[in-house]
Amino acid sequence: MLELITFSTLNGLLYGMLLFMMASGLTLIFSMMGVLNFAHASFYMLGAYFGFEISRRIGFWPGFVVAPLLVGAVGALVERYGLRRVHRYGHVAELLFTFGLAFVLEELVNMFWGKLPVDYRVPPSLDFVAFRLFDTTYPAYRMFMLLVAVAMFAFLIAVLTRSRVGLIIQAALTHPDMVAMLGHNVPRIFMLVFGVGAALAGLAGVIAGPALVTQPSMAALLGPILFVVIVVGGLGSLAGAFVASLLIGLVQTFAVAINVSLADVVGAEAAARLGDLGTVTVAQIAPVIPYLLLVLVLIFRPKGLMGTRET
């Protein structure tokens, strides 16, 4: 039991941190520009594929550095030449733009790398067992993922609260017009934020690619859950996104481990009246739980856990 709890916690934290790497960019972009970026998970996918392509040619580590930068550049270009033009037609147009972009990116990846999963491997330098606990091994690569995610979180917090750029970004979050009046180039800040957000998602892709699967559907698999994270965490709140990511990571992982069904709680006879619903175990509905959370949060606390404004 202790073994299950330990490893579920580790797995949940890791999944949560991975979610956070993407959600942080998404929530920054949303709170600043008001754009719900449907293509955000696509940048994650691009990161994985760029990482794969570079690691295949020169090695994992160059890919680890270069791929997120490339994705960031793609993101900045998308903002500069796509979103900014669409911006003047309002939020719905922007939403539709990113929605379409997600499909275009997926199709492009299909064309370049095919629909089959690519063989993106863990680098040999990290391909060993980090520790062994209760006879279960934990791969070093997963520890590395966790470290990268934590480092990125620390870096982000430091930039946002301690640097000049961070202060301007924070100001632009709430008072974009005032910031522009003060002589700052708000469109450029937007481009920067979009680029950095994309780069963070790209970084998540680079490190998640070898551990999970690198395939064109990876964006579609992870995309919806990101929206859950930013809504539950509260729009515009980085801390909220962090808490929500970990919460969802842990909830999903632990739910898988729980074999309790309604029948076990209220008794088989009472549960039988509910039909199949009575005998379904928590483990079976694990994938739906985050969305249930989304619905409940929207009903009872539209601000999200730590948000400052209504959704």
Binding site: S8, N11, Y15, T136, A211, L212, A257
Partner: peptide, 13 residues
Amino acid sequence: ITDFSPYIAKIKA
């Protein structure tokens, strides 16, 4: 499912 680790932990347990 993109990560079966939670299921593997359960099998192990």
